[in-house]
Write a protein that binds this DNA or RNA. Structure first.
Lengths: 245, 245
DNA sequence: TCATCACATTGATGAAGATCAATAGAGCTG
DNA sequence: CAGCTCTATTGATCTTCATCAATGTGATGA
């Protein structure tokens, strides 16, 4: 089995995180892979966990590297992206608190992960995690369901990338993000945007300039208000009309 | 538990498919969800299976409908697609022999599936299949791994849709398809194209005309040859250079 | 064999969004 | 608070691909 491999220079490392207090007090447990597990399974998972923290814009792991760990984000947010040799970048997702990184347990990372803000995560050795999944069917089932859900989101994103206009892309992005924040902090009209316009562009297959123009247009049309670090969604009905499935 | 719900008007229905001969002789077993299962698990799966056949361009199931069954394609090929209210279409994938439909076991179908040719499949009642997965950890693990693989393919497709030019899209599509055919029939330079140019366009986020122009260009550049019902890949190196990750 | 029909190809034009360029803020640091 | 840097916004122009339109081709069937 592989050793636990710490990602580059985490700010803090809590070797005693296997104390059951960690999981028991975890704010994102209800949202995470750990939800719907029995006490004994949770304890086994807890034993593998190591709590790590990251600075803003730190790399958690890189595309192509051997994959040693899987992670559960506990605070902050991160971008998942793939790079082409010539530098073009496609962001394949953003992970928020409660999100799990490591659904496709391959030998090598299929994408890179970088923090958007300071962030923290539960880290698990990949091999041990995989073995635990085999030993605990509830965990495996949970992982399978999460993978199915992710797959469904990825297919939605394909529609956005392949068949929507720039304005529709931005509208769908804002709605999708708000929906995810709602699960976490219950906010209804606020959508914090921890990522840059460039990040949004690389997620939606647009340039920074086009993202900026579309945001301005939505604001001019009184559908959103641009506020520091995010937007407020003023007119959900019209936003949904733009983004409708 | 839900009844087995046959898709609309399958051409043939073999109620005796639970005879173990079916699975034992299945040509695509090595490629399918059924691979890497123990004899007892395979037998349990076999009991649920029903072999069904479809005509060309028949709907197997439709987006938004309640999902009653999951399928394993045994011959022919199908398109998986999502429709927007105004008729725009995004094909989220093509399934070839051995491919499994039903990785995200949600209540309603997230997309429609139609055959591209005459095709046949193993049909399983969704609820019973889900229960079997819970009872047979090997099956569940297999499903989880397949879901992870699909997720990874979906992320590759996001890069193609979001950050590649028309020519690169077509090159990547042809290479990807050839790779999948190679697993099935071992062909190395032939890539049968059971789908129309329109289908390819709706998969790549292009119009029919652009797909046609790019195919012509690749043929003019002696990278491919267009043959009836498919293409031959003449210059894999240059094709890979266009499609490189 | 020819008519029909669906699909593919090719050409001409147009529009959405990319690119190039300049300016404006916002956050840091000395 | 001035100066610096990084990001966002806005404007002008250009390119790629979409759209509109015509023609070609291969399969089917009378």
């Amino acid at each position: 089995m592989l050793d636990v491999q710490a990602p580059d220079a985490p700010l803090t490392l809590c070797p005693n995180s296997n104390a059951s207090s960690e999981c028991a007090h975890c704010k994102v447990r209800a949202l995470s892979v750990c939800s719907a597990l029995e006490a004994e399974e949770l304890a086994a998972l807890d034993k593998l966990a190591r709590h790590v923290s990251f600075e803003k814009h730190q790399t958690i792991f890189a595309q192509g590297e051997a994959s040693h760990s899987v992670f559960n984000i506990t605070s902050g947010s991160v971008r998942l992206f793939k790079l082409l040799p010539d530098g073009r970048r496609q962001i394949v997702g953003f992970a928020l608190p409660g999100d799990f990184l490591g659904l496709s347990l391959s030998e090598r990372n299929a994408f890179s992960v970088e923090t958007l803000s300071i962030a923290s995560a539960c880290q698990f050795p990949r091999a041990a995690f995989s073995e635990l999944a085999d030993a605990k069917p509830h965990l495996l089932r949970r992982l399978y369901d999460m993978a199915g859900h992710e797959l469904s989101l990825a297919q939605d994103q394909m529609v956005i990338l392949g068949r929507r206009t720039a304005e529709e892309k931005v509208a769908a992005f804002l709605l999708g993000l708000r929906k995810r924040w709602a699960r976490i902090d219950g906010s209804t009209v606020r959508a914090p945007l921890p990522m840059s316009r460039q990040d949004i562009g690389d997620f939606l297959g647009l340039t920074v300039e086009t993202v900026s123009r579309m945001m301005t247009k939505l604001a001019r049309d009184k559908i959103i208000v641009i506020v520091p670090d995010g937007v407020r969604l003023l007119d959900l009905a019209r936003l949904e009309a733009l983004a409708e499935t």
